[in-house]
């Protein structure tokens, strides 16, 4: 079997072996969203206005729940250092790992957001814009949190540190996404901002795996 095939099979089996990690972000999202009407007001007009932004922030935070774990178990068990003996460049393996993470953990979470949208009575056209922004933005967010996780791999119990390091990079993504959502709610053209968001994700997905690879290698033992 090729390295890529083995990689994908293993990631899929890991998801099946750790159902807790799979459902945790979804529960988190639903819980946070169900608290909003209780804390604010059950007025559906008000909720509809702020709902999309609330869902965006809650989804972002839910994504961060598993981000720290991206490489940690494999690093502790010593599986990560075996990556270097596969006959593939490290950044390619990182791309595979991040793609699997996005597909198996992030996309299912995005699929749950319409439920959250209904709970906050977000209008349908805004909900569609929200789904598109999430699909376009999450590759970039996944790459950023992976870099944070890779940089803090050597520090035991780094917890939220990796996320904090990467927080400034999240800001432009959120600003662009918020722009899309406001434009969607007043009915103006959202395509230019979506294109920018997509460009941001493509740039992140092509450049950051290189940086993640270097950070992993540094943590494995300083060999370049």
């Amino acid at each position: 079997m090729s390295v890529e095939h083995r990689f994908l099979v293993r990631e899929l089996k890991l998801v099946l072996a750790r159902p807790g990690d799979f459902f945790k972000p979804m529960w988190f999202l639903i819980l946070v969203i169900s608290m909003v009407p209780l804390a604010l007001s059950p007025d559906s007009k008000l909720l509809g206005e702020i709902g999309s932004a609330m869902i965006w922030v809650a989804t972002l935070l839910a994504l961060l729940l598993n981000a720290d774990q991206l490489f940690r178990d494999d690093f502790v068990d010593g599986v990560l250092e075996q990556w270097l003996f596969f006959n593939r460049p490290l950044f390619w393996l990182v791309i595979l790992k991040l793609f699997c993470h996005w597909l198996f953990y992030v996309v299912p979470l995005i699929l749950v957001t319409p439920l959250a949208g209904m709970m906050l009575s977000v209008p349908n056209d805004v909900m569609i814009a929200l789904l598109v922004t999430l699909l376009l933005a999450t590759p970039a967010l996944t790459c950023f949190s992976a870099l944070g996780a890779a940089l803090t791999l050597g520090t035991a119990r780094s917890g939220i540190l990796g996320v904090l390091v990467m927080l400034p990079l999240f800001a432009p993504v959120i600003i662009l996404a918020a722009g899309v959502l406001t434009r969607a709610s007043d009915g103006s053209d959202i395509l230019p901002l979506l294109a920018l968001l997509g460009a941001f994700s493509i740039a992140a997905a092509t450049l950051l795996p290189l940086a993640v690879g270097v950070a992993l290698r540094l943590n494995i033992g300083g060999s370049s």
Partner: peptide, 12 residues
């Protein structure tokens, strides 16, 4: 290379 870390994943 076989290191002194187990190099096996506990959940698989």
């Amino acid at each position: 290379y076989l290191g002194h870390k187990p190099q096996v994943c506990q959940d698989l």
